[in-house]
Nucleic acid binder design. Structure first.
Lengths: 219, 219
DNA sequence: GCCTTTCTGTTGTAAAAACAACCGCTTTGT
DNA sequence: ACAAAGCGGTTGTTTTTACAACAGAAAGGC
């Protein structure tokens, strides 16, 4: 667990809390390290979640497969990101999505309800943590709205441009790397892969962008 | 302001707080009542928000119009619902959407940062309120995910069924009333109104559902 | 009551997406 | 090194959607 303190320190959840204190809190909160091989499930749709999870190594996809095997990718989780916060509230029902390891990954689980429900004076970081949680989920909320904006576009081209230009803004560069291959990007944008591939090549031929694998450059 | 205490008391934000205490808190937080006529803007895209807002009368739409006048409705806000929570975090940027009064409406604005940033021992409800805020935004997060699920469907029919059946589940009945007219529903689901109208009638003819105005019954 | 505006459904056409099948290249595993 | 699996691009066909234009019904204003 100690190895990951530097990562944890940089997460939104532990913002403003020192490394020493994090270690104390983790044990107090019953933190648990779990490892996954590529392709393994971290969480499954329908489960009830009692913990909040931080990814400390690897990468994950939050996704959903329907009856016919059509996959929809809700979001990509990178190192240092939190997930599961939306299901910590008492009335929140079962998980709506699967969480799956895209590569070998390591997570930290811990029972955030202890923070939320125990006497608030028990630990001086309770308040900080609740507030951090609030900011984290607030940010996730805004990013979901932005994803809705991409998906709401009517054509594949518009969806691509909406997504790629937001990534460019986030990464502060016209040259970006995305965490998806073609199929995954299509599943993320809810379009057909071949149609999307086609559109990408048209856009490239028109001089709108260039790409190689998962690196894109916008002009 | 007093007139709306019963409404406020039933909101998620003041859950677990008595009417008397709410009144005290409101003045302490600089709560402000604002009224809007049908069609007026409550908030505008690009603004920076310092307050959290509760709708106590009427109804609102959170929406966005692009350069060409295409409207996209993000969500409908009913009496007792909170909005703006996602923009209270310090690093959250400008508002991504407009908020507009669908009918004559009344809101309560108040500076929630006072709760989040002042010494937490100043008021015994600070912690309750931060926690309530957290649960509220957590629920909104889940509902955004569900909306993404509707929009992610590939055909208009699937989008309609996804949306309507979720409403039926929420309203716990096969017979539901939606807060949208046809154009608004189309803007909510990001499809063309006439195509949607067409599809609805086809579905009716096939015996999948029945409707009259904004009332729908699923079979 | 009458006029105007808004709302909903209808139709036809053009554009776009989904779907399916296939190919060559790369990566992976043994 | 070889076979198998995965990935990305291409093409043709079918389905679906967007778009535009219009008409009748309903609602709202004066």
């Amino acid at each position: 667990m100690k190895d990951y303190i530097p990562v944890l320190k940089r997460t939104k959840l532990f913002s403003g809390i020192g490394g020493e204190d994090i270690l104390t809190m983790l044990s107090c909160l019953g933190a648990e390290l779990r490892t996954y091989k590529k392709g393994e499930y971290v969480l499954r749709q329908g489960e009830h979640l009692r913990d909040i999870v931080i990814l400390v190594e690897g990468s994950l996809h939050i996704q959903k497969d329907d009856y016919w095997g059509n996959r929809s990718i809700l979001r990509h989780i990178g190192v240092g990101e939190i997930f599961g916060e939306a299901y910590v509230a008492p009335e929140s029902g079962a998980l709506l999505n699967d969480v799956i390891a895209v590569e070998n990954s390591v997570t930290v689980f811990f029972d955030v309800k202890r923070v939320l429900t125990t006497c608030t004076s028990a630990c001086r970081f309770h308040n900080t943590m609740v507030q951090n949680l609030f900011f984290a989920i607030s940010e996730k909320n805004r990013s979901l709205v932005q994803k809705l904006e991409h998906i709401s576009r009517r054509t594949i081209r518009e969806k691509l441009l909406s997504y790629l230009s937001e990534e460019a803004k986030k990464q502060n560069s016209g040259s970006i790397t995305i965490p998806f291959n073609r199929q995954q990007l299509a599943d993320y944008l809810s379009v057909d892969r071949s149609a999307m591939s086609n559109e990408l090549c048209k856009m490239r031929d028109e001089g709108l962008l260039a790409f190689e694998k998962n690196r894109f450059r916008l002009f």
